[in-house]
């Protein structure tokens, strides 16, 4: 059973990894956190869930729709909270993106209601058993899609001109401009991609939890913050490892201790990390405080 619980934890971790990736991408491009990404994930997931349960769309289409909604919402967030906010005021985008998040939540509850939305099971009869280990169809989907997205993102960032431009801008935006890169457009693109990742994470999380609720937005943001603080702000690999760690720790706590200790243990872990290694477990350079 321990092995099964470890696998459960890793699978939970993959959804955390996607949302953490989404945050880290923006941190890389702008040195800023988009605090509306949790709500972006929620809005995308709700739209995806509605398409699945109301219109009986195939999962692939609902997933693409969630990506599109995530991209759109993140793009709008960029324009509203970052594009025209002066870089001199470090806290301004934090507050304004938090505000966008609040508005998103209340928009969703006003327009679509405050009910939890069911995410129907996709692969109903698939169940893989390897010895004592059991992986059900939807877990497989989550694993495959999350892995696919990570690989696609990696290829995009490393093998395409726009992807390289994103990395260039995250190294030095002014210099990137001098090289002929339209910096604001690249940053918008970064937001859009991070929105797609958030959307993917939202719907996959919904698939794993069987429902999505309009009130989980900020919680998602908190989880992502835990992960990226632990993994090192802007450190993409560190974020993935930290996500897996938190997934496993949460799962094991619930399985062998009690659900009430779950958040406590993660908070304590992150607290200790902040005190002992403010730059995160896996980074050497800049500290969190310096970058936010």
């Amino acid at each position: 059973m321990l092995i099964q619980q470890l696998v459960n934890g890793l699978l939970l971790g993959t959804t955390f990894a996607l949302i953490a990736l989404s945050f880290n991408l923006v941190v890389g491009a702008l040195d800023r956190l988009n605090f509306a990404l949790g709500e972006t994930a929620m809005v995308s997931a709700i739209c995806g869930a509605l398409l699945l349960s109301r219109l009986d769309l195939p999962f692939v289409l609902a997933f693409l729709a969630a990506l599109a909604v995530g991209a759109l919402v993140a793009g709008v967030t960029f324009v509203l909270s970052f594009r025209f906010v002066s870089a001199d005021y470090h806290t301004a985008p934090i507050l304004s993106s938090l505000g966008v998040g609040l508005v998103l939540t209340s928009l969703v509850t006003r327009v679509l209601g405050s009910d939890q939305r069911r995410v129907p099971t996709v692969l109903d009869d698939v169940r893989i058993e390897i010895g004592p280990l059991r992986i059900v169809g939807d877990q497989l989907i989550i694993l495959v899609v999350a892995a696919l997205m990570t690989v696609l993102l990696y290829v995009f960032l490393n093998r395409t001109p726009w992807g390289t431009a994103i990395r260039g801008v995250s190294d030095d935006p002014d210099m990137s401009g001098l090289l002929g890169i339209p910096v604001q457009r690249v940053i918008l693109l970064t937001f859009v991609i991070s929105g797609m990742l958030a959307g993917a994470s939202g719907l996959l999380t919904g698939l794993s939890f069987h429902t999505v609720s309009p009130f989980t937005g900020f919680e998602t943001t908190l989880t992502a913050l835990m992960v990226i603080v632990l993994g090192g702000l802007g450190n993409i690999t560190g974020g993935v490892i930290a996500a897996m760690m938190i997934g496993v720790i949460e799962t094991l706590t619930v399985a062998y201790l009690s659900a009430t200790y779950r958040d406590l243990i993660v908070f304590v872990l992150v607290g200790i990390t902040l005190l002992a290694r403010p730059q995160g477990l896996f980074t050497r350079d800049t500290g969190v405080v310096g970058r936010v």
């Binding site: 459960n8 999380t205 794993s208 989980t216 919680e219 949460e250 619930v254 399985a255 659900a259 779950r262």
Partner: peptide, 14 residues
């Protein structure tokens, strides 16, 4: 056990 609003029940059900 779980706490309301908990994300996942995978672990408990396992």
């Amino acid at each position: 056990t779980y706490t309301s609003g908990d994300p996942s029940f995978t672990s408990q059900v396992t």
